Simulated scan of single mutants.
Amino acid sequence: MLALAGFLRWVFVVPPLARQYMAGDTTTRAAVDAAWLAQHQLGGALLGEHLGQTLAIAWSTTISVIILRRRLLPAAVGMLGLVASAIYLLNQGDILTTAIPGVPAWESAGFLGSTLWWSMDRHPRLRAPAPASTQPTPQNRLCPAASRCRAAGLPVQP
């Protein structure tokens, strides 16, 4: 939701600023420059990127911990999720440098963290096995022909 708010500035804030800049004199252009920087830092860097990504990191960390505690998926998925979240957290330095010069930043961290998290879902060994109840067997398959089903001892379709 925060990322959406950051993106919507391109629809509602940037076009009027661009029109004012193009139609304005030197003083107006200087004022629009300042307004652009303020809205970009607030809407883009703070809301869209920093807070939006921080919440995404909190979500992926929570999901990873749930995976590890409840053993819903192989433990490697939860561990790799925690690693990806930590790497993605390192990307916050790249965002913070727009407001605080000198903050250490690792430019590839966001790409690496999100790619690692995404690729875990694509790896066949890291996928959860299908629940036994969804695999068709005589015990869990409903039979549409009542007389033959009862004779075979299968559940009858209502």
Rank of each mutant, 00 (worst) to 15 (best):
P104S: 07
R141P: 00
M120Q: 12
V103Q: 01
P138V: 12
N140E: 06
A130T: 10
L112M: 09
S108D: 07
D121T: 10
T137A: 12
R125I: 06
T98A: 14
L96R: 04
P129S: 04
V103C: 04
S108C: 03
S133G: 05
Q139S: 14
I95D: 11
W118F: 15
H123M: 15
T137P: 04
A130I: 02
V103D: 00
T98S: 14
G102R: 11
L126C: 01
S119F: 14
W106Q: 09
S133I: 05
A128T: 03
G110I: 10
P144Q: 02
L112E: 02
T97A: 05
W117I: 01
T97E: 06
N140Y: 09
L112P: 01
G110P: 05
G113L: 00
P136C: 05
T137N: 02
C143E: 12
F111H: 10
T134C: 07
L116T: 04
G113Q: 03
A128P: 07
C143V: 12
L116M: 02
W106E: 09
D121L: 12
S108V: 10
L142G: 04
T98W: 14
A145Q: 14
G113R: 01
W106Y: 11
I95V: 15
A105R: 13
I100H: 07
S119D: 07
P138S: 14
G110F: 06
F111Y: 08
C143R: 13
L96A: 13
L142C: 00
T97C: 03
L142Y: 14
I100D: 00
S133E: 11
T98G: 13
R125F: 06
T137C: 00
A132F: 06
A128S: 12
P124K: 02
A128W: 10
P104K: 08
M120P: 11
A105E: 08
H123E: 14
P124R: 12
S119E: 01
D121F: 13
A99D: 11
R141W: 15
L142W: 15
P131Q: 04
A105C: 06
P101I: 01
P124M: 04
H123C: 14
A105N: 03
G102S: 10
